[in-house]
Amino acid sequence: MRTPLLLSLAGSAVLAGFSVAALPFSRGLFRAPRTPYDASEATFTVPAWILLRRAAEVVPPEASVVVRTEPPDATNDSYLHRFAVALLPGRKIIPAAMWSIPTPPEALSGSDYEIVVGSVPPTPSGRLVLSIPEGTVWKRRP
């Protein structure tokens, strides 16, 4: 075998070996993940993903929804708005924050549902319709 080919194959073998080494063996490679982000660097999306997928079963189409974190965090709330647009199709998503700037409270008060990622809010804003470890869903109007 010629030297250039041997070098190329050696390079491929090294890179292939590093690809195998990059696999998340310690997290259970053969266990089905709960979300597409379980073992990624974007694990912060996992609780929101789980809650929003469950919320899609109880929040009807066309409803207006605010998604936020508890305790409040404008940067996380900005991302939650985007996640909700993706995972709650057909609903009107009102951002609790945009580009890390909180939305004025009066703009949020008209929403039909409030989805809270994290702890139960100290002053609940309506009737509880879903509670799971990742967060809660509240119906604001009767």
């Binding site: 292939a16 997290r27 995972l87």
Partner: peptide
């Protein structure tokens, strides 16, 4: 080598190791 690399890419994807935030 190619099969090992593709299998690793498949395993990483199935294990939710390599999902891009841009998809969401």
């Amino acid at each position: 080598c190619a099969c090992v690399s593709i299998t690793a890419a498949l395993a990483a994807t199935l294990a939710a190791r390599s999902t891009s935030p841009d998809l969401l």
